[in-house]
């Protein structure tokens, strides 16, 4: 107590600040940092959830490197990212850009676009799964068949399944991205547009020279945000392919689903931890890249 009384005001402020921070710090250490560190340790061990953990050196990583499924899954994960991120950004920007100019029923339209984002992913994935079924129950195929065309194997195909699963994932994320884009558009001072109009510049030039450059922070944020969400895609894939998770023939399996299966159906915890460390590294690189890109602001 005497020690505290002898502190200066600013030192006391530090003590209080840490006093209040202690709870979240403790929370993060126990709930986040400790399990993370433990997972990294586990990735060098062999453990089936029962019994003791045994040291395995780099065995898990060597197994991972030699596992053809891992490379396929790695590729799938990046296909989700490379198709999903640009597609969702372009679509949401186009919608936000035009929605920004609409006065009639503006709030209603915005709410409608936001609605899928509020829906539970699991429920949505199951509804889309039903849409994609072959005749006689699938909505899309019933329609296609009624027009007299050959039905399309949406999910039971090594080429169609991944885009079929990606589509609802993009659709569900649109609402959020549209709202962020619209906030970004609103934040651009109208004086720039007025000046451009006085100069008689075309709409295309305004978009390219004013709107897009000034939206850069918004775009960077959304790129990183949606990249991370596509790299972590799981719910949509798992729920739309529960009978054959990540199938057919692993053509839709993302890394997170592989981790889940390795851990909780094969009970190979060490191997799953090694995969988690790889995913962690990828996400870390993406986040660091974000910091680097945001730096010049």
């Amino acid at each position: 107590m005497k020690f505290y009384r002898n502190l200066s005001i600013s030192q006391k402020q530090v003590v209080w600040a840490w006093g209040f921070l202690a709870l979240p710090v403790l929370f993060y250490v126990v709930i986040r940092f400790y399990p993370t560190a433990d997972a990294i340790v586990l990735s060098f061990q062999k453990w089936n959830m029962l019994g003791i953990r045994q040291w395995a050196g780099f065995d898990n990583y060597i197994k991972l490197y030699n596992d053809p499924v891992f490379w396929k899954v790695f590729r799938n994960t990046f296909v989700y990212l490379i198709l999903g991120t640009p597609a969702s950004l372009v679509i949401s920007f186009a919608i936000a850009y035009h929605l920004d100019k609409v006065r009639f029923l503006h709030s209603t339209l915005r709410a409608l676009y936001f609605l899928p984002f509020l829906t539970s992913t699991v429920a949505m994935a199951w509804v889309w799964r039903w849409f994609y079924q072959p005749v006689p129950i699938g909505l899309f195929n019933n329609f296609i068949a009624s027009l007299g065309f050959q039905q399309i194997a949406f999910l039971n195909s090594t080429t169609n399944a991944l885009p079929s699963i990606l589509l609802p994932a993009i659709w569900a994320g649109l609402g959020f991205q549209i709202i962020i884009f619209m906030a970004g558009l609103r934040a651009i001072p109208t004086s720039f547009y007025e000046a451009a109009r006085i100069d008689g510049v075309s709409n295309w030039t305004i978009l390219r020279e004013i709107t897009l450059p000034l939206l850069k922070p918004t775009i960077v944020f959304l790129v990183v945000f949606s990249s991370i969400s596509f790299l972590r895609i799981f719910d949509q894939v798992f729920n739309m392919t529960t009978n054959n998770p990540g199938g057919p023939l692993d053509s839709t399996k993302p890394l997170v689903l592989m981790i889940y299966q390795t851990a909780f159906s094969s009970f190979d915890m060490g191997y799953a931890a090694a995969q988690t460390v790889v995913l962690f590294s990828i996400l870390l690189i993406v986040s660091l890249l974000q910091l680097y890109l945001m730096r010049d602001r």
């Binding site: 054959n244 199938g247 057919p248 023939l249 692993d250 299966q261 159906s265 094969s266 009970f267």
Partner: peptide, 15 residues
């Protein structure tokens, strides 16, 4: 590994 061994046959038919 029941689910792993099941997957082997699922994939065999898919191929």
């Amino acid at each position: 590994d029941e689910s792993g061994q099941r997957q082997v046959l699922v994939d065999a038919v898919s191929r």
